[in-house]
């Protein structure tokens, strides 16, 4: 088995269909919808589209967890002991087990919400962020940016479960949140240890994290305004070790991503 498996080689059964961001941007409806004022984009149970949006998001969580599992797995294999010490790989193996459970939870929650595996397409950019060959960058991109995003997503879903009185959703999301906080902590810890004597490498890793954070804010997908379905979970991010300045920076990147999307849609719409 070779090291560094490219995203094209991710193995899936026939239920899974890949999507890509470019398809979304070429959809002529995007320009039109941007000209309409839809009150809040937040996931709230009293909105007509809430069930379909919640199901779609749950399926997104499901495929995201599969890719997080694969990414953590690859980190146990892709690096030798000098690049990634055993203790780091042990943490990644632990994350494999956690992500494996998260996939199981997501499948069950999907069934609970009335969706099924493969009902929506799979975007693979989460795994793509895990294809970098420097373990410090990979941990910054995956464990700090993407697992941080997972904190925001799970908190949003937990709030949705609470607001809709869905005890199963709220219960499960809360458990997954606990794991994600641990994964972010692992990422922060290993980023610091791996780059202890190399500030330039640390800066490159943090820059990569910023790029991933911006990418995953996806034109306002994640942010702190009503236009974002996924809200930044400040309290849980603090528990995971992000300081206020870092969270403010992510909020700023999210706002930039929303502005970029508006500009892009303004050009194409």
């Amino acid at each position: 088995m070779k090291r560094f498996l490219p995203v094209e080689e991710l193995a899936r059964d026939e239920r899974f269909i890949r999507s890509n961001i470019a398809d979304g941007f070429s959809d002529p409806r995007n320009g039109r919808i941007q000209q309409r004022t839809i009150s809040t984009a937040r996931l709230q149970p009293d909105r007509a589209s809430a069930p379909d949006r919640a199901r779609s998001l749950m399926h997104g969580i499901f495929v995201g967890e599969i890719q997080a599992l694969e990414a953590a797995g690859r980190t146990t294999f892709d690096f030798d002991d000098t690049d990634a010490p055993f203790a780091l790989k042990l943490d990644m193996a632990r994350q494999c087990w956690d992500e494996s459970r998260h996939v199981e939870i997501s499948v069950k929650l999907g069934e609970h919400m009335g969706t099924e595996i493969g009902e929506y397409t799979e975007a693979t950019f989460l795994y793509e962020a895990a294809c970098v060959t420097d373990p410090a960058m990979r941990l910054a991109g995956v464990n700090r940016a993407l697992e941080g995003l997972a904190i925001d997503v799970f908190n949003t879903m937990k709030d949705f479960g609470e607001a809709s009185g869905d005890p199963i959703l709220k219960f499960c999301e809360d458990w997954m949140l606990a794991d994600e906080v641990t994964h972010v902590k692992m990422g922060s810890d290993w980023l610091r240890r791996l780059t202890e004597r190399d500030p330039e490498r640390r800066e490159r890793a943090l820059e990569f994290q910023r790029a991933v954070d911006k990418l995953f804010s996806l034109g306002g997908f994640r942010g702190e305004t009503d236009e974002s379905p996924i809200q930044i979970a400040r309290r849980f991010r603090e528990l995971a070790g992000f300081d206020t300045k870092e969270i403010d920076e992510i909020a700023g990147l999210a706002a930039d991503a929303l502005d970029d999307a508006r500009a892009l849609l303004g050009q194409t719409g």
Binding site: M1, L5, E9, L10, A11, L69, E70, A72, G73, R74, T75, T76, F77, D78, K89, M92, A93, C96, Y127
Partner: peptide, 8 residues
Amino acid sequence: ALGGWIAT
């Protein structure tokens, strides 16, 4: 090996 195989 098990970790590496997950994606494959």
